[in-house]
């Protein structure tokens, strides 16, 4: 396995994985992943289906905990703190590391209630005007404010697919997380909605650290600063996105990005 995580640079690692192994029952899905995720960057995870990139993403906010047979070994840190430490509160972790899913999943509530769901849980505001401010700011950050500002009380499920996904992003942003994980956020959307979300990801980078799983290599090239290539449960290589796409060091990476397999 190529050791590629210790990349030279002055940037601070926001999150880091060291020897991360994931098991589903007896089956090992990840074979020991070492990777750093830097502050205010977009890291793209690419690779063929079943390579473990989504599994790895879900270990970063312990969403794998909800699967009975799933077991994680190794160490993942957030600001140097081990997130699998038994003393750590998983609820707080997920407030700091938010997630946007493959399929838009707004709650069957109003747009307003979708946004304030997280802030209410975590007591981020108490007064109505504070909540109003959070809703407006989150929707603006997700580029949805102008489209929905007049119908905040309508159900979130009534929006179009692209709008729903931006609502889900706004919902994640509303909790003011430090890291946002995105699991193929555009795979259920049409090209125009996709372009919208990609622009949005670039803007969100100013305030958040983003990890995005994608099947679309052009998307990875467009939105990310660094790219990690996964293959059969191994992290084959990780580096600057430009480097990976123009001059990959591993022939498996080359094979995948040139479309020989995947």
């Amino acid at each position: 396995m190529t050791k590629t995580s210790g990349e030279a640079g002055t940037k601070r690692a926001k999150m880091a994985g060291r020897g991360v192994k994931v098991f589903y029952g007896e089956k090992r899905a990840l074979h020991g992943i070492d990777v750093d995720i830097y502050q205010n960057e977009v890291l793209a995870l690419i690779g063929p289906s079943g390579c473990g990139k989504s599994t790895f993403l879900r270990t970063l906010n312990r969403m794998n905990d909800t699967i009975d047979i799933c077991r994680v070994e190794g160490k993942i840190t957030l600001d140097g703190q081990d997130i699998y430490d038994p003393k750590l509160d998983v609820v707080q972790l997920r407030a700091r590391v938010g997630m946007v899913f493959q399929k838009p999943n707004p709650f069957p509530k109003s747009i307003y209630d979708n946004i304030v769901y997280g802030p209410k849980l975590h007591g981020l505001a108490t007064r109505k005007d504070e909540f109003d401010a959070i809703v407006e700011q989150s929707l603006k950050r997700a580029g949805l404010w102008t489209e929905v500002k007049d119908r905040l009380n309508e159900p979130g499920t009534g929006l179009s697919g692209g709008q729903q996904q931006r609502l889900c992003i706004a919902r994640a942003v509303a909790v003011s997380p430090e890291v946002i994980l995105m699991d193929e956020p555009c795979s259920a959307l049409d090209p125009i909605a996709t372009a919208h979300i990609e622009e949005l990801i670039d803007e969100l980078r100013a305030n958040f650290t983003i990890v995005i799983v994608t099947h679309n290599m052009q998307q990875a090239a467009r939105v990310s600063q660094r790219t990690a290539f996964f293959h059969l449960g191994d992290l084959v290589e990780v580096g600057a996105t430009e480097e990976i796409f123009t001059n990959p060091r591993d022939e498996r990476t080359q094979g995948y990005i040139t479309g020989r397999y995947g």
């Binding site: 969403m63 769901y117 997280g118 849980l121 975590h122």
Partner: peptide
């Protein structure tokens, strides 16, 4: 996906059950 969405926002299981 609704459960995941709620848990992903840092809700506990009982909060997810009650509110979603």
């Amino acid at each position: 996906s609704l459960r995941d969405g709620s848990l992903g926002l840092g809700a506990t299981r009982s909060e997810t059950v009650r509110q979603v």
